[in-house]
Every structure is written in C-alpha cells, then in structure tokens.
C-alpha cells in the first residue's frame, strides 16, 4: 500500500472526523450553557453569568468539576457493564454526524470533488437509525448493572418509552425518504431544491410526528420521565462524576443530531432560501458552500431553540399518557401519513 492509498482510506477520513468533532463537541458543551441562560430568561432570572464574560466559561468549569469528582462504583453492581454502559449512551449520537451533508461539495481547480461530509454513504439516514437504535442499551445496561432496584425500574420505564417513540420517528423519516426517493442526505436536499419547496409542506404531518418523537427520544420535557432531574429516580441514580455526565453529553449530542437531521429532512438542509443555489454555486462555489454551512447551522439552531422553548413552557406528562401518545396517537398518524405521502408521490409529485 502506498502513501496515497493510506491517505485516501485512513488519513483524510481521520482528518475529516477531527474537523467535524471539534465543532460538534463545542456545540454540545455550549448548548448546556445556552439552555440554562435561555431558561433563566424565560423565568425572569439571569442564569449562569459569573464564570467568564456572560458565563461563557461555565461549560469548561462544569466539565473540569465532573472530571475531578470521584467515580463511584456500587458494591452490588456488575462493574464491567456498569462502566461501559455510558459509552452506549453517547457514542451513537456522535457516530450519526458522520453522514450529515453540510454543504454543496467543494470542487478544486484541478477538478477533484470534495464533499462536505465524512462518509456520504448510500444508506444515509438508515445508518443513523440503525446506530441510534443501539443507544437504548446504554439505558438498559445502566439500570440493570447498577444492582439496585430503582435504577432497574427507571431503565425499564425509559426503555419502553424509547421503543414506543422509535417507531413513529422511523415512520416519519420513511415518509421523507419516500418523497425524495433516496436515503442519502445530500440526495434528499437535492430533491427538495429540485422540487422548489421544502418537505415541510408536503410532509407537514410527518414533521409534526418527527418533532414530538424527537423530543421523546431525547428524553426532554414534556417526556423527561427517564431523567426527571430533581424528583423522579431514573436509570442513572447510581452514577456519579464523569460517567453520569456522559449521559448528558449523549443527550445534548442527540438533540444536536436530531436538529441537524430534522433540518436536512424537512427544512432543506444547506439550501439557501429565496436564492437559486445552482446559479450561486456556479458563480461563486466557495461563497455558496460557506453560506450553505451558515444557513444550515441557523436552521438547526432554530430547532434547538424550539426544544428549549418547549422545556420552558410545558409540564411533564404522566407515564400512561406518554405511552398512549406514542402508540395510540402518533403511530396511526404516522402510518396514515405514509399512505397519503405514497399517493401524493404517485399522482402529484412524480
């Protein structure tokens, strides 16, 4: 194997992964700060504003504190499973970013095409769904290996919640895949650009189902029974220090991922609204790519703010209500929507 081959299969992907992961980690860390500040403003408080200007160093201080805390492992636990369970919680969320297409590809003067994506695979969204279906083990193993009753109950509750909402979430994504005719995220964006409007409109029901199930899948208010920060005993009761924090890193990474995916699926991804992207791209490829990433980030930020907004306004559902919404309300809507979208595709949007 010569140097070029190694670079093609190992070097460039690694460089791309590092370039991608640094902003993702930063966004995940600062989302906590942003959420705390925004929630505080919703409630006429100031929020964390002491560490650094506007409290901007707060996430670093928090991380440092959590790293220095003692890592307790209960006597009655299964130590190996107890220690690896948090990995299951946060790694699927980060792996999912690999297939996200961030902008139109950059073409070098010599004619080489560099797509703005780590791995532009055919499977696309299906890959994310497959990987993120593993994150449920983080919760189940944590609850079981703690060797204590309350985490076990908490993990069963969370597991059935995640199972209940994974089905409508997948079906709402399938509706978009049906409209676009491809799993690949860059194809989905291209299909929306070709059609001229975003899938928000033909897929408005799918969008609603996606939003509700996304909130439930990420364990956020009003479906935050798995965590219930101050009052409900959840699956991570026995965890402390950084292992406890990994669950929250995973949660915020999941929120970011689901915002990014929702943007791609329903809001046109890196498509710049009211501008013909193709002409702009032909004239100034660099400008189009950079603007594309910026627009993408802005749209995804809208999603994230919406999540925080819900948290500031809604009370929590009861457990039976939560399961009822998943199985009795969302699932039939998602199924009916799938039929409607299929007919739309068959007759109107050929």
């Amino acid at each position: 194997m010569d140097f070029a081959t190694i670079m093609q299969y190992v070097g460039w992907p690694l460089i791309k992964i590092v370039i991608l992961l640094i902003p993702v980690f930063t966004v995940v860390a600062y989302m906590v700060w942003f959420e705390r500040r925004l929630l505080a403003f919703f409630q006429s408080r100031l929020g964390p504003n002491r560490v650094g200007p506007l409290g901007l160093i707060q996430p670093i201080a928090d991380g440092l504190k959590l790293f220095l805390k003692e890592d307790l492992v209960p006597l009655n636990s299964r130590p190996f499973l107890f220690k690896i369970a948090p990995i299951f919680a946060f790694f699927p969320a980060f792996v999912g970013f690999a297939i996200v297409s961030w902008a139109l590809p950059w073409v070098t003067p010599s004619g080489k095409v560099h797509p703005f994506v780590v791995a532009d695979v055919d499977l696309g969204i299906l890959f994310v769904l497959a990987i993120s279906s593993l994150s449920i083990f983080g919760i189940i193993l944590a609850g079981w290996s703690s060797g204590s009753k309350y985490p076990l109950f908490g993990s069963l509750r969370s597991a059935s919640q995640m199972l209940a909402y994974e089905v409508p979430l997948t079906l709402s994504v399938v509706a978009v895949v049906l409209l676009a005719g491809s799993f690949r995220l860059s194809d989905i964006v291209a299909a929306q650009q070709k059609m001229g409007w975003y899938y928000l409109f033909p897929g408005i029901l799918a969008f609603g189902v996606y939003l509700v199930s996304a909130v439930a899948e990420t364990n956020r208010v009003p479906f935050d029974l798995p965590e219930g920060e101050s009052e409900i005993i959840g699956f991570h009761t026995e965890y402390s220090g950084m292992r406890f924090a990994w669950y929250f890193v995973g949660e915020y990474a999941n929120v970011t991922l689901i915002s990014v995916l929702g943007t791609t699926l329903f809001l046109g991804g890196y498509d710049i609204p009211f501008v013909n992207d193709a002409t702009l791209y032909a004239a100034h490829p660099w400008l189009a790519s950079i603007l594309g990433v910026g627009v993408f980030a802005a749209k995804a930020a809208l999603f994230a703010v919406f999540f925080i907004w819900i948290r500031a306004t809604w009370p929590r559902y009861r457990y039976d209500q939560l399961l009822k919404i998943g199985w009795v309300v969302l699932l039939p809507i998602a199924l009916a929507n799938l039929v409607v979208v299929a007919l739309l595709k068959l007759w109107l949007l050929r």
């Binding site: 299906l126 083990f137 069963l156």
Partner: peptide, 21 residues
C-alpha cells in the same frame, strides 16, 4: 450495506432489547 444496516437495526436494536428485558 442495506442488509448490514437492517441487521443492526432489527436484530441488535429491536429484538435484542426485548431479549435483554
């Protein structure tokens, strides 16, 4: 690739969860 994704999605993510529970 498709079979691989379905393998992880259905067996590892779906059926195994029910087994483990």
């Amino acid at each position: 690739e498709f079979v691989a994704a379905v393998q992880v999605f259905v067996y590892a993510g779906g059926i195994m969860v029910l087994y483990v529970i």
